[in-house]
Nucleic acid binder design. Structure first.
Lengths: 194, 194, 194, 194
DNA sequence: GATGAATGAGGCTTCATTCAT
DNA sequence: TATGAATGAAGCCTCATTCAT
């Protein structure tokens, strides 16, 4: 039945969203099934109808969030604009996640050491996929002469690290708007590339 | 009694070191008093002679580590070298922590959301002290014309974020030595400043 | 409605058979409604259409199994053969249950301590009915002089105990066939009676 | 410290005894850590100071009980009496367990299907050790001509089965004393051997 | 100072049971 | 009739904390 399947999927997603929220507030260990369920006005027992156990649930959180973020990067990559522009936009996209979708963002870049090997592997792979879009743009940019760096990977690491850090200090009502931050960061970070 | 006080302090430090290690491996929630004690061939009961409770212990871990790291920055700042050189050395010092003293490092820059407000405040203050040495060097550099940036705080954030990120990807037997990483990072990051 | 009643009864029996199987594998506590239902490609919710609750279902398992086994003994008792022959055949029948219908057999002679008094009573009564056929044959045999024992009940207990125990050690591919076991057991056990 | 070790051992034994009792009343699955602890006026948490988990506790129950029972058989075997006498006494010993130490007895002869392979193996071995003393007496008896049976194992199985069954029907205030039961059973069962 | 032992709260998980559809 | 979904009680287990010795 298409309908019931859809419903199931939707519910799963709701739960995942709730879990993402709690996990980002409290971390993997700190998040409790109780709280995740309470957020949705469910009882914790119900969660086990949808997910095998806590690890499974948290794993699917990672998977889902990474999926979305990666799609966004991909679409930027496929636009017909200069590599410099692409990189700027990617940085902006990433910053927006860090600031405005703090919850989902943390999930991507705070690799908890809580997964068994079998589950950890696919996550790391998906994370690589995500980073890969940055690498590709930088590489292209180097080819076209827009960027002038030798240590590609290092440059990418600096870039991601700098941007990820934002959510450590950013506060909703700070003295800079999201746009300003995006502007300043991309300006300064592009300096690294040139 | 000077002697017994010294002994007490030494013991406390031993415990803190053990705790730092475990916390960085497992996180705040994951670290157990049992394990922290076992590391020192003690029983967990004994820990409560030295620390009021788990939170207190972990708090003092942060305090101690930050103290040390800050002293190191201070000594660099007081050397008679150019601001560019100072910044390079600070970055190098920070990178070394991130790579070779991973355990203590994490403690500085992974602010767990586990502290009550009373305890959190002094930690944040100490962290500010640490960051402050970076700010001061950058500010001096701008004054002398070595650096040319308007957004001081932002630049410092980019710098710290980039460097902090290292320990997310660095592996002991990677293809770059600590020195190479220090070299590349300070080169690329100084580009931001100029 | 004859037809729908028949259907209902058939379905109930199917469920009972499934339950018998699972209970004998896992015990009362270990058997789950989920698994019992899964065996029949149903969902556990459906079971409650046919049975009031788990206890009721398991109870009816016992009832059904005992019914069948008792009928078998009765038919042996009504044959025109010597009491010695009858007893031999009853032992053989019981052994066959123990070996080849292990699942149903366990149900008869592993009295779980899970029933409330109201439910337990009728089960014990039915079990008595079953045992009674043994008693009657032995009694008749004593009257005719075929058997020579004073403690009838004790003798029957020894007999049943010995035979019930078979399924504790019997393995499908052991070095004795069912027939051999039936032969040896009835020979040895008849020694007790004489 | 000899003393503290002794205390520990004693406590463990107390817990085991409590567990044996509960398990025999409710079975492995039915017995709860809560109840086992309550019996000793402890809290369930404390049990985990002495045993790794439920399985470990129950396993040690089996081990302890089997140990004791086996020692008893061994001492009978080493007496200077006829094999017929030995067998009679062994049966009596076993019956006494079945009747008066019901709780420990069940543990020996109700092989729960709850142990992992690693734990199950040593238990089965110990059970074999126990049965072995019966085998040896029977074998010796056959050699000396006291017993006249071909199927040794079968005879032993009949014997054990019959005796184990006692506790299924025996009630504290029945019309036979333990001594009478011992008398009748050994008389009837020795018939099988001759 | 140190520890063995106990505790109790809280977390994960299972499962019989219910009920709207 | 059947089921998908939800519930809540109960069980196992962990662990910070306490305290008598």
């Amino acid at each position: 039945m298409k309908l019931s399947e859809k419903k199931l999927k939707k519910k799963k997603e709701e739960i995942i969203l709730s879990a993402v929220k709690i996990v980002n507030e409290k971390g993997y260990q700190g998040a409790t099934m109780e709280e995740i369920a309470a957020e949705l006005l469910m009882t914790k027992g119900s969660l086990y109808y949808y997910f095998k156990n806590k690890e499974d649930l948290i794993f699917q959180c990672h998977a889902m969030v990474l999926e979305q973020a990666t799609l966004e990067l991909e679409s930027i990559f496929n636009k017909k604009i200069s590599n410099e522009q692409k990189l700027k936009r990617m940085i902006a996209s990433h910053i927006q996640y860090a600031i405005e979708k703090k919850e989902t963002f943390n999930m991507i870049f705070k690799p908890e050491k809580t997964f068994q090997m079998e589950q950890l592997e696919p996550i790391l792979q998906k994370r690589n996929e995500y980073s890969n879009w940055f690498d590709q743009v930088i590489e292209e940019g180097v080819k076209t002469g827009e960027f002038k760096i030798k240590e590609l990977k290092m440059a990418r690491m600096i870039l991601l690290g700098a941007v990820n850090w934002i959510q450590q200090w950013h506060k909703p009502n700070g003295d800079k708007t999201t746009e300003e931050i995006q502007e300043i960061y991309s300006e300064y970070l592009l300096k690294v590339m040139t």
